[in-house]
Design a protein around this nucleic acid. Structure first.
Lengths: 217, 217
DNA sequence: CTATTTATCTGAACGCGTTCAAAATAATCA
DNA sequence: TGATTATTTTGAACGCGTTCAGATAAATAG
């Protein structure tokens, strides 16, 4: 306990480290700049040089607060996850039967990404997103993401508890559903020329079939 | 008919265009160089400058034969698709029941990408893969890819014909299966820290559940 | 005040994919 | 032969993400 500031020598020499508040403020200014650029010109509009210009500092200065561009962009993802979470919650509002809830969540999940393909691309379709040692893990980086996953988890657990889905494992069930939905969004967005039969109906068909299968196994 | 060389004036002035054979040969040399570099040091080892060095020309010269880096890398994908096709064919060799065949195809499909994550990343997890006007479409760019998709299509059509899957649409059925499998591979590869319950069992669970659902609907 | 120490910031550089004007090349025409 | 013309090749440049040695800034110590 009291791990922070464990050792603060009473007379620090040299320039003092910038205060947490100052750092947070600067970080916020930079993130706002990035947000503005992303909104204005999409992912490719957000270059480190442009962000630095917008924030009024040198490109190199960004690297004192963020290890790399992806860390900087996490902020934008957080906003997207928050919006997705809202859309998901709205989709199940007033609906109580867990399997029906899962179906609605699935459709809303895919619809959200189809409506925000730039965000999906920036988040999932970039190779160097894979975590590096010392990096904050993707799935732990967003409060909203964690909460959003819980919507699926809760509905699955309930469905299993009342026998509407055959578990035994709620976690595995959730992961199957998530993979399938992610696959629909990913394939539709990243292979648009595939000749998809009914893009906007795909999520519904997928959840219906998968949940039927998970109920019967 | 006879659309090629329709108009070749008898006395062309200026330096003659390089022959088709010469162009093909040069293309092959460049692709070999790229192949070697990819095998040696993965995706990030394949830079246009490195390829040019290996092929003995200037980086700019590459752009007379390929519109961009991705077009150049399509060759490597083609090889991956060919290998995947072989793996898929091997997985259903000696198996005739169409639903069982689909299950085997599904498992083999995901297993292949999990065994070749670098290829998967290079092909699917890069944002600028999205086709541009005038570009050869991704799905049409590979003979092997087309043939591989047909394995799924044939099995699905058979399954529907004999009532083991409820269509009505074979194409849509295939697309659902493909999305689900792509989702499993994509999620497992691009979000390794998710805490997957049983990565290597996922594909089997997915195809079992999905096909059960598609049979019952 | 100056010297010292530490933290922060920046300009220059690297390799990257890509573009383009200019150079080199290879043919025909006179 | 040299002039002309079309094609290929290239060197230099752009903006990109990122790194790093050195400049600058802000505190204490004397």
């Amino acid at each position: 306990m009291a791990a922070r500031k464990q050792k603060s020598p009473p007379n620090p020499r040299g320039r003092p480290r910038r205060s947490d508040e100052a750092a947070a403020e600067e970080r916020a200014r930079i993130l706002d700049a990035a947000q503005a650029l992303f909104a204005r010109s999409g992912y490719e509009g957000v270059s480190m040089r442009a962000v630095a210009d917008e924030a009024g500092c040198s490109p190199a200065a960004l690297y004192t607060l963020f290890p790399n561009k992806r860390a900087l962009l996490r902020n934008i993802w957080e906003d997207a996850f928050a919006a997705l979470g809202e859309a998901l919650e709205k989709s199940v509002r007033g609906s109580h039967e867990p399997v029906e809830r899962l179906k609605r969540l699935g459709r809303a999940f895919v619809r959200f990404w189809l409506d925000h393909p730039d965000h999906f691309r920036a988040i999932f379709l970039i190779e160097d997103r894979v975590s590096e040692p010392g990096d904050v893990y993707f799935v732990d980086s967003s409060e909203s993401l964690v909460r959003l996953v819980r919507l699926f988890q809760d509905a699955s657990a309930e469905a299993i508890a009342e026998g509407a889905l055959k578990g035994p494992d709620a976690q595995e069930t959730v992961q199957l559903i998530f993979c399938a939905l992610h696959g629909v969004a990913s394939a539709l967005i990243s292979i648009p020329e595939f000749g998809w039969k009914a893009p906007r109906r795909m999520a519904g068909r997928m959840t219906d079939a998968l949940l039927t299968g998970l109920a019967a196994r």
